[in-house]
């Protein structure tokens, strides 16, 4: 079974009450965020994680490539959470990962920027 199949099955195991498969999709509190770029360096979106570790998400650039990337990042965040990482850990874990045709990449060495609120993240 692949990891994404396993993660999908995790959502349908209500008898396991230990962990929600997904991070919260939004937050009122402060966040950290990093750029997600295509291979040519153009922006695909921004990956964010809440300071309290509970919420994480991907803000895509408008258009089909951004939405496609968002799908890939939703899955990556599920996998990171299944590994026991909180939202900040997930952000760190995917920083510097290799380029991916669908998800793009967070450039290695990217330092996450603080924003007081989700809507304080500059457009990607």
């Amino acid at each position: 079974m692949t990891d994404e199949e396993q993660a999908a099955r995790d959502e349908f195991r209500p008898e396991f009450a230990g962990a929600e498969p997904r991070f919260a999709a939004d937050t009122d509190g402060p966040v950290l965020h990093v750029p997600v770029l295509r291979e040519d360096g153009s922006a695909l979106g921004r990956l964010w994680a809440s300071r309290d570790g509970a919420a994480a998400g991907f803000l895509p650039v408008p258009g089909p490539a951004g939405l496609n990337a968002k799908g890939a990042w939703v899955r990556r965040l599920i996998l990171a959470r299944a590994q026991g990482l909180d939202a900040l850990g997930a952000l760190a874990r995917w920083t510097g990962a290799p380029q991916d045709d669908r998800a793009g990449a967070v450039p290695p060495g990217s330092v996450p920027e603080h924003a007081d609120r989700l809507d304080g993240i500059p457009p990607p």
């Binding site: 692949t2 990891d3 994404e4 760190a92 874990r93 995917w94 290799p98 967070v106 290695p108």
Partner: peptide, 25 residues
């Protein structure tokens, strides 16, 4: 659905920036 070592699935094939993957398999 991907089967096995899809390069699109960064979880399986890349080590990322920081965390070593626990050996879930």
């Amino acid at each position: 659905m991907d089967g096995g070592h899809s390069p699109e699935d960064g979880y399986r094939t890349d080590r990322g920036g920081a965390e070593p993957d626990p050996s879930r398999e």
